[in-house]
Design a protein around this nucleic acid. Structure first.
Lengths: 142, 142
DNA sequence: TCGATTTATATAACATGTTAAATATTAACG
DNA sequence: CGTTAATATTTAACATGTTATATAAATCGA
């Protein structure tokens, strides 16, 4: 699958930097998502960072142990978690972000800004088109 | 990552069919690759199906247990495996292939043949551009 | 208010990806 | 030759994806 190879090629550029700071790709996505709002509920965080709830649950446990995030519960709904990034978490991001942005810039110049934009557009449209095409893909008669 | 979401959207169309026959996405890739030549060495198979050697090793063990593939060793090189698909394996493929092709056709018509071709081209070029850009992505001074 | 259903999150079980190390075999070199 | 380096494959250890199930809390209806 072309999508698979392209994604692998892209991620291989970012992994070394993340690995140097003992972060996985998914942990990085979660941390960065947490900088975009004061607090998140677990479900929101999973949607925003495209990570399944079971994985997110494990990731949060790991990040909490490293004190990169903190958790609370909502007053109004004792089921809901309030997840936020800590000062340490922000420091780590500040440490990594420049590297990450440099890699991204490398990719942009290597591939071309315009083509990258076109690619983004097509990918978004493909996902959108498939997702609302049919919520439950029809399993043909059998 | 847009690549991630697009891939997930695509695969969610194929997974139900595969799951109904107790196959994972990767096992399916391996089986199909095996139909394109008489025999494969493990390393070739890993490259062709974009699966890491450790994963492939586990997958081959599982597929062999189900008698969908068979293994031998090369005369000239006792390290090298000779992996080939069995009759049962071909039967399973014949059973699934029509469903798989129908899903693919659905995606093609939903998204548009021309746009799909454009997307393929961009993905291939992106992967190629990143892969020979630099074998070892330069880790900047730190 | 009680009980059934939904919602938010967590856990279990299994397969795969990633990294590193182990094993076996071949090739290369002194 | 024998020792070392390279190659093909496997295994180990850990993190994640996928599916199914469990737990807890909220909501809804009788």
């Amino acid at each position: 699958m072309a999508l698979l190879k392209a994604r692998e090629a892209v991620m291989s550029r970012f992994r070394p930097t993340l690995h140097a700071h003992d972060l996985t790709e998914q942990q990085w996505r979660v941390l960065r998502a947490l900088t975009t709002a004061e607090e998140f509920r677990a479900g929101e965080l999973a949607r925003v960072s495209s990570i399944s709830m079971p994985s997110l649950s494990r990731i949060l446990r790991a990040l909490e142990k490293r004190a990169l995030i903190q958790r609370g519960v909502e007053d109004k709904d004792l089921r809901a978690a309030q997840i936020s990034i800590t000062a340490s978490g922000r420091e780590l991001i500040a440490l990594i972000a420049p590297h990450s942005e440099r890699r991204y810039a490398e990719i942009t110049t290597a591939f071309g800004e315009d083509r990258l934009a076109t690619l983004y557009g097509l990918l978004d449209e493909l996902a959108a088109c498939l997702n609302d095409g049919a919520e439950a893909p029809p399993e043909d008669e059998e």
